[in-house]
Write a protein that binds this DNA or RNA. Sequence first.
DNA 1: CCGCCCTGTGAACCACCGTTAACATCGCGG
DNA 2: CCGCGATGTTAACGGTGGTTCACAGGGCGG
Lengths: 197, 197
Amino acid sequence: MTDANTALHADAARPSRREQILRAAAQLFAERGARAVGVDDVGAAVGVTGPAIYRHFASKDAMLAEMLLRISERLLEGGTARVAAAGDDPLAQLRTLVAFQVDFALDNPALITVHDRDLGSLAADDAAQVRRLQRRYVEVWVEVLGRLHPEADAATNRARAHAVFGLVNSTPHSAGRLPRRTTAALLAAMAEAAATA
Amino acid sequence: MTDANTALHADAARPSRREQILRAAAQLFAERGARAVGVDDVGAAVGVTGPAIYRHFASKDAMLAEMLLRISERLLEGGTARVAAAGDDPLAQLRTLVAFQVDFALDNPALITVHDRDLGSLAADDAAQVRRLQRRYVEVWVEVLGRLHPEADAATNRARAHAVFGLVNSTPHSAGRLPRRTTAALLAAMAEAAATA
DNA sequence: CCGCCCTGTGAACCACCGTTAACATCGCGG
DNA sequence: CCGCGATGTTAACGGTGGTTCACAGGGCGG
């Protein structure tokens, strides 16, 4: 009954087999695309055979769904929390949002990659739920951007938000070649400049 | 003998069956992901059955390969041409590059989407060739950015270029909701601000 | 008008892959 | 010590989808 909820609190400390699978799958999905990796691949990555996966997940799609749902939830929760803690200054709010997104992208390049590439290979209802969360996260940004650009309408600020996401989420494409701090500072500066342009 | 070359000069005027297929495939690939669309789907989109495709392409992978190669070539050629025609001012060069990329992304959202999502589902040698072209295009940007940021090293400017690509290529995610001119102006302003930050 | 090439069709083939079934092992509570 | 739940393994099933094959129509040069 609480089975579905068990999925929600990730045990980062001592990763259960379930968590190992989820992590390995995220890595593989990011590298080759969700449809291109087989259940056997995921199993092999954690040292078991393919069908063993079904002791932990109902299906391969369920794995992907849970993965994407978690990401979207973490982004939404983190984003709203940061804004709430940032006081009333719109620029300060923007800066924490940018820092948050940059950190997230640098910490979880695989998740970021899967997030906006494999949404399409989700069942209709799962996809809808993910999109709802995404939309709410975007709205957090739109609200902040709205105070920085009072003259712009919501649609424009939505496009602005997506553009900033694209900028920050470019990390996986150019990752590893630069020290993390340098990359983080660069992306934050660029994102802020773009968002306030 | 000149059969392979025929592929190179796109007949935009009266689209041959080959071109129709390529266009329809690009659209479908962008919507669902290359691996998720079947040969039958592509065929149906142009009014023929699945196997008819093989009268025009050696395989489904060959379709994708030609698609990605063309995009990369167009970007590289267009980018170098624009820079060459822009004179010596680095800022002017950046502006034409930005305008070029924005126009391309707005004109070919499907190609942009496929371009950086389905590269992974290409045969090793095709992928390598595409990556070579991509790298050369990035270097065009890096050179221009290098003159705008003389203090930064090449790796930093590479990351900068990727970030700008991510920003501009966000169009497919927020497309349609805004008039094209507005979107173009917004993206260009944001991209320039980010690139010069 | 004959015959060949181009393009297309429907059926069949075959490999791959997600999923299930049937059976082992291990650890732990009673 | 018995047994049961959790976890895994191997074998098999079934669907999907890329590819090939044998055949048909149709236009065009000779």
